[in-house]
């Protein structure tokens, strides 16, 4: 039998459509990881994902403390849903999560975006969502290359060894 030929990923396009800490960081880690491997990387933010590239909001992301059955108390006990709704709890849990990420050398969102572009990755914002949230280019991080349409996005995704990932 002949050896199976491998086709390594050459280009990856990631879509981030949600704005909670874990959704945004999943996209950022995967995008940065691709850049680190020398893979051509495009990162596209849409809907609530735009928070991650909006200057005023990018470093104030939260995680949701309600409706998340995997949420645990420190120590591993289940996290009661009613507790998640108590004012201040979501902020406290979110800052605790960010602190734990910082201990693992995970950078804040603005710095993470800089790391991605420093390595040659490109960051885009979805035109439709930008219009919907009434944002302007200057409201967005300087690391954002441009505001593009979904058609532009698909054009960028050409090539046989390209993958599109929706996180």
């Amino acid at each position: 039998m002949s050896e199976e030929k491998k086709f390594p990923i050459k280009k990856v396009a990631l879509i981030c459509a949600k704005g909670s800490i874990e959704d945004v960081y999943a996209s950022l880690v995967m995008a940065n990881g691709a850049v680190m491997e020398g893979i051509e990387t495009k990162l596209f933010f849409t809907f609530f994902g735009l928070d991650a590239i909006t200057k005023k909001r990018m470093n104030k992301l939260h995680t949701s403390t309600v409706g998340n059955p995997a949420m645990r108390m420190p120590g591993g006990m289940p996290f009661p849903t009613w507790l998640g709704g108590v004012p201040g709890v979501e902020s406290a849990v979110s800052s605790m999560m960010l602190k734990q990420m910082d201990e693992l050398d995970m950078p804040p969102v603005d710095e993470f975006l800089e790391m991605i572009t420093a390595g040659g990755g490109e960051i885009f914002a979805c035109k439709l969502a930008v219009d919907m949230f009434k944002l302007k280019k200057e409201d967005l991080s300087d690391e954002v290359d441009s505001i593009i349409t979904i058609g532009d996005f698909y054009e960028m995704c050409d090539g046989l060894q390209t993958q599109i990932i929706f996180t």
Partner: peptide, 26 residues
């Protein structure tokens, strides 16, 4: 991490990618 190299004062992350093109950390 790439971040720690960027903070080392030797090279910025951008410079690090230029020094070791492709997959710099590897």
């Amino acid at each position: 991490t790439i971040r720690s190299i960027g903070k080392s004062g030797i090279a910025s992350i951008k410079e690090f990618y230029k020094l070791f093109p492709g997959a710099p950390l590897k």
